[in-house]
Nucleic acid binder design. Structure first.
Lengths: 188, 188
DNA sequence: AGTTGCTATGCGCCTAGTTGCATAGTAACT
DNA sequence: AGTTACTATGCAACTAGGCGCATAGCAACT
């Protein structure tokens, strides 16, 4: 699993608390890896036990104390080990695809509505990603190192959302035409 | 979760045993939903308890007896209910993306090798899907109903694999150029 | 007689992840 | 004084899924 490793990467870039990590996972890191705060706190606890990170209590003004986590040498070693280890390519697991296969057996109208809902979702995500691309990475050819890597991950998100969006359009077009033909058959 | 619903859809199209379902999930259904035989047997057992399917022992010649599962009215009702229920769009969860972000902190060479490995994987899957598309769906405009839905799901698989492949190419190109620039800096 | 391979079913343990709930300080608004 | 919102942490129970292992009939080959 990669949540631990995603946390190691994030903490290497900048030390922080569980709460801060959760916010990072909501934003840039969450482009490709969602994690709830419960998961993050539990994982951090385990990582402390394994000596991959250390924790320091930090008093704050005007807000509750926080625990700042920092990567140890052991954590860096684990990250190197994991980077060199092959991982399985993602298996696509699409509930929407199951629903499309099920459309023959039920009301295809509700499936079409569902696809439209997914289309909106992906269009919105894509809009956010495109905005970030334009705002933060105006000159991609000049990027290097960490900044380049951030850009490339964003590109992956853009490609994934664009792909889903295009598929939704293909689905809606084909299913609408199929319905129209079915109606013509009944009437004619 | 959709494994139960994927099984319902598959069994509605044709009744079968756990073993047969496992093979279907290895083939067409597995384009978008992988499931091990252990998972399928366990899920079928639960589905019998819920009266979504019935089971009949069938003696066979030259091979072990099998248990054939059939969808009940209750199962069909559940499938309808689920089809109408909104599902969350898939959150992309890419270990490869985590590794790219980690490349700044470790050996970018091993990350490039990993991307190349993923590229091969996606190229191979895409090849299989394209072959099926050409062989089984030569005239997509004429498709209707169940056959159309099968084709549309395959199209989703093609789009997903093509997207991953293109991203891998973009990654390899950018990371190679970044390395070459770094080398030029050291030498110059 | 032994091995390999396909068909066929299933259990037990573990990890990862989700859901719901609980606590608590501070600030700003009503 | 009460509500809402943000910061900050965490547990308990549950579900899904993966990994390893076990059993067993039959066929074909060695």
């Amino acid at each position: 699993m990669a949540l631990e490793h995603a946390i190691l990467v994030s903490l290497e870039e900048r030390a922080g608390s569980g709460y801060e990590l959760a916010r990072r996972f909501d934003r840039s890191f969450g482009f490709f890896w969602a994690a709830s705060h419960q998961q993050i706190y539990r994982t951090l606890k385990r990582m402390v036990e394994r000596d991959w990170v250390t924790v320091t209590d930090v008093a704050q003004e005007g807000r509750p104390d926080k625990k700042v986590y920092r990567v140890t040498d052991g954590g860096r070693a684990e990250l190197s080990r994991w980077l060199a280890e092959p991982t399985e390519p993602v298996t696509v697991r699409s509930e929407l695809a199951v629903k499309i296969r099920g459309a023959s057996l039920g009301d295809s109208g509700v499936v079409i509505e569902e696809i439209a809902r997914h289309r909106s979702h992906h269009a919105e995500r894509l809009g956010v990603y495109r905005m970030i691309e334009k705002r933060d990475f105006a000159d991609p050819d000049s990027l290097r190192g960490q900044r380049l890597h951030q850009y490339l991950v964003l590109r992956g998100g853009i490609r994934a959302e664009q792909g889903q969006l295009d598929w939704c359009d293909e689905l809606l077009d084909a299913l609408h035409r199929d319905r129209a033909r079915g109606k013509a058959d009944t009437e004619g």
